[in-house]
Design a protein around this nucleic acid. Structure first.
Lengths: 340, 340
DNA sequence: TTGTACGCGTTATCAA
DNA sequence: TTGATAACGCGTACAA
């Protein structure tokens, strides 16, 4: 910038102004400066600008993994909104690991992010996140509906969604309902789903049976393996609620491998409504969550918090939907009996 | 840092040293400084450090979209390696759009990225990318095997992979082979696949028929729609090569909807070997690409280029594999005839 | 082992 | 409308 100033015969201040407030510079000067910038392939240094302005324009985002399209949707939403607003996105994945997550959080703080978007967080991270907020880095959690009234989120009600799906299965006369669930010992999101499942059972007088519940990572292979376990249970479930579509699709594979049919022999429900859920055979009954929209809203809210009040608490609870497709059917005693 | 220095009764330089070369500081002083840092919740400012050192530790990555797990794998690989090496990742997606891509490139440059990883790039971007390299920002392209000997890549041979799949289909006695292909008018990767398909046909004396080729975005819905077009062709293909698993799975859906069977009535092959390809019904014959590994290698190579010679050209061509599962069968004339 | 002085590329402030 | 100066938070060279 100094060089440009020299070549243009103006001060560095003027050059700077050409970029951030062109109207303060006489049009002649402006064009001359601009011209020289082109000629010399001058590139503005945004980090230096941020430093000088004590004001960062990058926000960090942490997801459990980028391999799962559930988070891909959110990233896309965040990213697009960020672009519109002039922010850049720094990304990291935690693999559901508390210490990896902590390191990322620390790293992002050192990188002077203006704010943070977290697609959930592992248990035990709360205090650290709050300390970030106190230190002036607003954080928004997505994919969750937090009970804590002092933390911001743009999410949905995992408890309610899981409850509604379980209840739907019960309304189909199922009473032995297996559950394949994500890392509920690590993430609140999964835990809430488990609780929703439990309460729905209870509310309908069905005793909770821990042997019908399997915790795994939300992947195809884990889903297949978990379903294997459920199917070889003495008290085999007549319906399985997979609280992740990946678990469901993996499970579907295991079911077919054993020559069983969905939904005739066993009902199967998912969660997330990833694209491929509608394309599976049979199409998967599942819970739709607004991943992309959530990302956009979170980024917009975060930007506002950054500009206005960094310690403000914002909470948005988006709607989920029960998408009924063809993977669940009414329980008919004879069928299952004949297979047992 | 100045404050810490004051509180510790040392100079800012000493505090600085405590972080980047602790061994130069007497252990007593070191511990005292560290202690005061904890007490005052001092956080190191990595961007200021980068600025002062004229040396960035963030690298940019551009993918077409984060919604496609093909890129999710690469991101994961890049991200993990970056973490090991002390780099942070800035991410952006282009949506296969040239001008969006250009804006990201420009933005990353202003952000002083130390290097760039591009999961391919749209036609017309080459010159700009080269100018980035010339200006000292090493760029590595992934998912491609570039013909240009002046650009670095960590990729695989799309041409060869597509050729081999087409040839496999031909070896199964298919002679009318449809092609569902990604944005080959925008991205080299897709174009190369198209060329591989063409040459394989030619080498086996099969005339190229443009009406058997449909270009779409690699999504489920486009795959379904494209397959609809192919299936209603007068000269319906006996096999379809979907040069993207998403296109294939979308297509599979369209096939089943018409009451046709795979592979008995029509063979179907994919490309990418995304996780779900092995879980589809029937499991998809496809081309395996090393997405995760590619990401790791790219990041490692980039880091080396940043440290050593920024204008060095590195080219890694990774192996792809033809994964034969159950979605392709030998063509039997009677079957197709009876259906027509 | 520690400190001083200066510079990194930009912006804010104040004065002209 | 423009410029001089100081500052942002840190690292490096050199001196002590």
């Amino acid at each position: 910038m100094k060089d440009i100033a020299l070549l243009a015969g103006v001060s560095a201040t003027t050059v700077s102004r050409v970029f951030h407030s062109p109207n303060l510079v006489e049009s002649g000067t402006r064009e001359r400066v601009l011209h020289i910038c082109k000629q010399n392939q001058y590139v503005y240094n945004a980090t230096a600008g941020d430093l000088s302005r004590k004001n960062s324009t990058v926000v960090g985002m942490i997801v459990p993994t980028t391999r799962n399209s559930v988070f891909g949707d959110s990233i896309q939403g965040v990213q697009e909104k960020a672009q519109e607003l002039g922010y850049s996105i720094m990304i990291g994945h935690s693999n559901y690991d508390n210490s990896a997550e902590r390191k990322l959080l620390q790293r992002f703080r050192e990188r002077q992010v203006a704010g943070l978007i977290l697609a959930g967080f592992t248990f035990g991270q709360e205090r650290f996140i709050k300390s970030l907020i106190e230190s002036g880095i607003p954080c928004i959690v997505t994919s969750e509906r937090l009970d804590d009234s002092s933390m911001s989120y743009v999410g949905y009600d995992n408890f309610k969604a899981a409850y509604s799906m379980t209840e739907y299965l019960i309304s189909l006369k199922h009473r032995r309902i297996g559950l394949m669930i994500g890392p509920c010992s690590k993430m609140n999101r999964a835990k809430k789903r488990l609780e929703g499942y439990k309460l729905a059972l209870e509310d309908h007088g069905i005793p909770y049976d821990p042997s019908q519940v399997i915790e795994r990572e939300p992947t195809l292979i884990d889903g297949k393996e978990a379903m294997g376990v459920l199917l070889s249970l003495k008290e085999r479930p007549t319906a399985v609620f997979a609280a992740s579509d990946w678990l469901a699709i993996g499970g579907l594979n295991a079911i077919k491998e054993r020559g069983l049919r969905v939904p005739e022999d066993i009902s199967l429900a998912g969660f997330d409504d990833i694209d491929v859920a509608a394309y599976s055979d049979p199409p998967l009954t599942t819970i739709r969550i607004p991943g992309y929209e959530m990302g956009r809203i979170a980024m917009r809210a975060l930007a506002e918090m950054i500009k206005n009040d960094k310690s403000e608490v914002r909470q948005y609870c988006l709607e989920t939907g029960l998408i009924v497709r063809e993977s669940c059917a009414e329980f008919r005693n004879n069928v299952t009996t004949s297979l047992e």
